[in-house]
């Protein structure tokens, strides 16, 4: 089959060559035949090369996937450690410069956390934390610049995350799509314990945007889930008696109908 097609192509080329030499009046037709022959030759090349290219691209895709799966955890770990170290170094540098330069003292606010870490944050970030802002408003400008505000119930890790959230939130507020994507990415990076600690800290410092974002994530986590799942998720002890729970179910039975079997409990 292939041999016949190959020989027919060769014959076609020979016929076209001879025909061109014979008559000028049929030039256009012969040109079309030649073009078709060349097109067929090129298309045959293309056909033969396509499977190879496709397989090469697949192989490359697999390579990329393997590299990604291998490198991601190491890179993530390194990035996290770098961030922490950079944050500490920056904070120490900022603390040193704050004592020497007068201009920065007006624009920066010092926050001291429960574990003794001092943060130098921008004034607009401190303004987002309404508890801190109230403290600043309650004291004079000179004293607030000199003394770090103590935060007895907030750890350094939580405060670092809150500062990061405020910065990224401001950057992502340009468009609603970016903002939603950022909030989802921020929440996905937290496990349950980190989210609990962060929401408690955000509640204490009254950072409304972060508080609303985290509340929405927690509500999403428990929506359409069973009661037992929620208890385990939050580590809550069931202090209902059997009779009390049965009575509540009976009184509010209208809300539990038409619920999926998986989430019914």
């Amino acid at each position: 089959m292939a041999k016949e097609s190959g020989s027919s192509k060769i014959e076609m080329l020979e016929i076209s060559n001879e025909a061109m030499a014979e008559a000028q009046s049929s030039k256009i037709e012969m040109l079309e035949i030649n073009n078709e022959a060349m097109a067929e030759a090129q298309s045959s090349k293309t056909v033969t090369m396509k499977p190879a290219e496709a397989e090469e691209s697949k192989t490359e895709t697999q390579k990329i996937t393997d590299e990604e799966s291998k490198n991601v955890p190491i890179a993530a770990t390194e990035e996290e450690s770098k961030k922490l170290s950079i944050t500490k170094v920056e904070e120490s540098k900022n603390a040193a410069t704050a004592t020497t330069e007068g201009e920065k003292e007006e624009a920066k606010v010092s926050l001291k956390t429960l574990d003794g870490v001092t943060f130098e944050v921008e004034a607009w970030i401190a303004k987002e934390m309404e508890t801190v802002q109230a403290y600043i408003d309650d004291t004079s400008a000179d004293t607030s610049a000199a003394i770090a505000i103590p935060l007895h119930n907030v750890a350094g890790r939580e405060l670092a995350r809150m500062v990061e959230y405020c910065k990224e939130h401001r950057r992502a507020s340009v468009s609603a799509g970016n903002l939603k994507e950022f909030e989802e990415r921020f929440a996905a990076a937290l496990n349950l314990y980190e989210m609990k600690d962060l929401i408690i800290a955000a509640n204490y410092l009254n950072t409304k945007k972060l508080l609303e974002s985290l509340s929405r994530c927690i509500a999403k986590a428990i929506k359409n889930k069973s009661v037992e799942f929620v208890r385990d998720y939050f580590g809550v002890t069931n202090d209902y008696t059997t009779e009390e729970e049965a009575q509540y179910r009976e009184t509010n039975a209208w809300a539990f109908r038409n619920v999926d079997e998986d989430s019914r409990n």
Partner: peptide
């Protein structure tokens, strides 16, 4: 004292069936 206001904010994102279900977790949630 710890979590009533936080629970309040979380519950504001729930519809009524989920709110009734959350009320069954414990008496504080109720």
């Amino acid at each position: 004292d710890l979590t009533d206001d936080l629970l309040h904010m979380v519950f504001s994102f729930l519809d009524h069936p989920n709110l009734c279900k959350a009320a069954r977790v414990c008496k504080q949630w109720w």
